[in-house]
Amino acid sequence: MIYQPSMLAVVITFMLSVILELIYLPAMISLFRPEWLVMTVFFWTLRSPSTVGITVGFFIGLLLDVISGVYLGINALALSIVSYLAIGMHKRFKLYPLLQQSLVAFVVVIIHLLIVNTFTSLLSRAEAPSDLLLRAMFSGFLWPILVVVYDRISFALRG
């Protein structure tokens, strides 16, 4: 995609992923709940590092901190790093085949989850959740679908 994404598309997809992040799922399915906001930040930083970068990642991270009820700053830190990684690889990423893109998305999501998990287990006596790998795998699995849907939205709303 060569066109500049419109702000409206960025805002809409972020709002959509906030809602998806908040939706309650039955216990069985919620083991697999993907990291919508992380994937959305990763997607937009790859598509357009000039509009969505480390600053946006930081503030979306603060939002995610409030949503998931952890100490303010943990997700902000992790998402800033996610945006940084995305900026570094955004030129190469376009050349990857879809399967490899999914694999990279999986690795990025698990980096995010590991950073968040390290801080939360340092700061509270919570046990390490065992579902990190499942969630990252499912996020990577959903990556192609997310790319198609977000590109459709951003194409429909192009300036």
């Binding site: 970068g53 930081f58 100490y71 303010l72 700053g73 902000a76 830190l77 800033s80």
Partner: peptide, 14 residues
């Protein structure tokens, strides 16, 4: 430098 700034601000916030 922007990443370093974001990380510093996050750690202060935490």
């Amino acid at each position: 430098y922007r990443l370093i700034l974001a990380v510093l601000v996050s750690v202060v916030l935490i």
